[in-house]
Nucleic acid binder design. Sequence first.
DNA 1: TTGAAAGCGTTACCAT
DNA 2: ATGGTAACGCTTTCAA
Lengths: 344, 344
Amino acid sequence: MAKTKVSINDIAKNLNISKTTVSFILNGKAKEKRISDKLVKKVLLKVQELGYQPNQLAQGLRTGKTNIIGLMVEDISNPFYANIAKKIEDKAYQNNYKIIYCSTENNQERAKEFLTMFTNIGVDGCIIAPTMGIEKEIKDLVNMGMNVVLFDRKFENMSTDVVMIDNQGGVYDAVEHLIHNNYKKIALIALALDKPEKEDRIIGYQKAMNDHGLNPLVFPFPFKSNLHDYVDDIKRILEQESDIEALVFGTNYLGISGLEAITSLNLRIPDDIAIISFDDHDLFRIHKPDITVVAQPIETIAQTAIDTLLQKLQGEEGDKAAYQTINLSTHIIPRASSQKNNHQ
Amino acid sequence: MAKTKVSINDIAKNLNISKTTVSFILNGKAKEKRISDKLVKKVLLKVQELGYQPNQLAQGLRTGKTNIIGLMVEDISNPFYANIAKKIEDKAYQNNYKIIYCSTENNQERAKEFLTMFTNIGVDGCIIAPTMGIEKEIKDLVNMGMNVVLFDRKFENMSTDVVMIDNQGGVYDAVEHLIHNNYKKIALIALALDKPEKEDRIIGYQKAMNDHGLNPLVFPFPFKSNLHDYVDDIKRILEQESDIEALVFGTNYLGISGLEAITSLNLRIPDDIAIISFDDHDLFRIHKPDITVVAQPIETIAQTAIDTLLQKLQGEEGDKAAYQTINLSTHIIPRASSQKNNHQ
DNA sequence: TTGAAAGCGTTACCAT
DNA sequence: ATGGTAACGCTTTCAA
């Protein structure tokens, strides 16, 4: 911690005026308080000279506002979250907010501790991609008056703004895309933090399969902190279910793990097996063959989340009551991994 | 910001004792102050009951310690930095420190503003992967008594701890690896934020080439915030210098851009051109053929940086004077992109 | 037009 | 063994 910082008192003493006056000037209330232009200039000059910077801790303590936004994501090293974080941080910064972020690794305990940290530190609001099991804690936060915007996952009956994408529709489209390319035996490998029947990506898959009279085949996975563990699991699936024609992956790291599994089994994409993954990724774009994906509108998600929060933070107290759920749609980026060369 | 938080006063009033006593108990000074076990228990119980959490702003204001560490990196969406950030955050969290991070995008102005933000907010220390041109600001920070650990890049004559990797040696090894695999016309594509002759990765390349009597061919690049822009540049190079046999990339995103360029020109790796890149990446591991890399010891870098800082923060005032530069070495992960099948 | 003083939630010195 | 109170740096009400 910096030692000898110059405080508002130093400015005041140095100029033989009261710190009140300095504070007024610094907070742009000079006109309102009809402080003479001369004095204003003198103070501003001294501020420059002494390199005064307000202590945000004291400011925060006094005003109850810290200009800090808490951002909680599942895994900051996942490009999906990293890019959202970057965008959010950028926008926050432009509006004079700082981001204090944390990466939960889907650890419920950690997530809870981060939430109390947010309140202890006094963040003005937070943007959260919630993990399972922290519904109560978030509710408490909201009840205490914290401004919260959720994204990526949501809870039922929660009084917060939510930015979601159409997970069901995204996977539905993916399955249809495969069906249109003449694949029939299509399996889904997806994360199921909650019960499978409550996971939208699984639901979307099942709907699509049913609508086309095909048998669904779902492999639900728990979250694993070591992503490499998925590779072996997927290899096992591929070995046991060798008649699978196409695979849909519910997240980018499942897709990447799948790619590794497929490669190590010497299967060819898309001839032996077609694949399509949720979330775009450099790797999917550059891989040969390149991989068809269900792309999330990352920019829009970030933009919407931060805009919504800033509006709450800067808006009237009145409109705090109005909560909205914003649904954004995904789009398929068709690439080589989902269309057999010799087909049709 | 949370509204009705229970304060230490509430506890005191509720129990009809002074807040001093509560504070002593909460800070583990009960024995030292010989407070009765009964009272201690009663207070702790009430704390539980009321769900008291200390206000860290007030704590910070009073003690001059915030338990916040500032982390500044070039680009949080680069897996190299993201993984380091994750590791650092993890370790910090275990030691009851929070991370407030920011991503400079190599923007000098932004970096400077973040640094003043760090002091205004009163972080206890910071870990910085510095961009060019902020040498003076970092020096000021250090002079104010801030604990600073630098990594990834360093400045000369700076009184801070530094965690570096052997950039020269890493590239040197890469070049030798290629030479051993019978490549002669080896070019380097690397970032040069500073003058090329001051960039260790460029120096290492030149040394290696000279030591083996080969002509160096360096393509230095400025930082570009849109990484896609590199692709076209690299394509142009490949078209103009069609006799290049092997390419060394100075960073992972240059390597990825190179891969895109090579693919779009329909060149085969490693038969038409061999490549080796600095920094490992999922993409390099999974790409076909997989890409040889100079891997940085990410875990160790993160571990060393945070350990060094924590030691400073928690250690005696005395050892602040001792600064060390820690050099870690890289290692080559040989893969298919750097050895011709028909060679030898 | 300017200033004194209270107060935000803590900690810590000095009493008792 | 416990409590009163000043202080951290700032904002803001009230007074002059």
